[in-house]
């Protein structure tokens, strides 16, 4: 359970970025991402420009850079693949620090990493400056189909409930001498996740009952 009234990616503030309407921010993020993705790998100056724009936005929002940096761990799997690329790609090879790597691979990895980082930082900035509720409202303003917005709203609502449930189950496992971190106990962890899935499914059914009981007829009011 998070303290305060925000989500854990949200950083409370009153900057112009915080106050801007959510649907503008969403459109801005989308436009920014499309531009970044469409930029060729070797336009290094352009990437510098994008980074500058992002940093300016973050500074204006008064969200500490460290706050964003810490949440960038989600990028780690991408970094892993980017590091692999120069080694497994084909083409002319060059020596970097005495190791022979593929040149096109290296350029591709650099571009890939730059684009991924810009994307992650931009999304984190949006998340840090916009409450989830406002994001949903923004999506609705942008005419995102109702069903999709509803599904996202349920996801936000139940994320904490389900993580809490998982935490309790893991505590239960630990209390009975099972360490979920040890590979020897991974089969046990997998079964727990299965049980969590079933529990969540049953919760879904109970929520649906509660919705029907309050006159739900297939359309969100």
């Amino acid at each position: 359970m998070g303290a305060g009234h925000g989500h854990r990616l949200f950083f409370h503030g009153h900057s112009p970025i915080h106050r801007a309407p959510a649907h503008w921010k969403l459109v801005a993020l989308l436009a920014f991402m499309l531009t970044v993705v469409a930029t060729p790998h070797h336009w290094y100056a352009a990437f510098g420009g994008y980074a500058l724009v992002l940093v300016t936005v973050i500074l204006t929002s008064r969200v500490p850079l460290l706050y964003i940096a810490r949440r960038m761990v989600v990028e780690v799997p991408f970094v892993f693949f980017a590091v692999l690329m120069p080694f497994i790609a084909t083409g002319p090879r060059i020596d970097v620090l005495g190791v022979s790597v593929s040149e096109p691979g290296l350029v591709a990895a650099g571009g890939f990493l730059a684009k991924a980082t810009l994307g992650v930082v931009a999304s984190l900035t949006l998340a840090a400056t916009t409450e989830p509720v406002d994001l949903l409202r923004g999506l609705r303003t942008l005419r995102m189909p109702d069903q999709i917005v509803s599904i996202m709203s349920f996801m936000i609502r139940y994320l904490d409930v389900v993580t809490d449930e998982l935490r309790r189950m893991v505590t239960g496992m630990r209390s009975r001498g099972c360490d979920p971190r040890s590979p020897r106990h991974w089969p046990m962890l997998a079964r727990t996740l299965g049980a969590l899935f079933i529990r969540s499914y049953e919760r879904g059914e109970r929520v649906h009952l509660a919705m029907l009981s309050r006159g739900y007829d297939g359309r969100m009011p």
Partner: peptide
């Protein structure tokens, strides 16, 4: 008929 279910997390599903 207004039913209040046992687990409030089932009843409170909106943001």
């Amino acid at each position: 008929v207004g039913i209040v279910f046992q687990d409030p997390d089932d009843q409170l599903f909106m943001p």
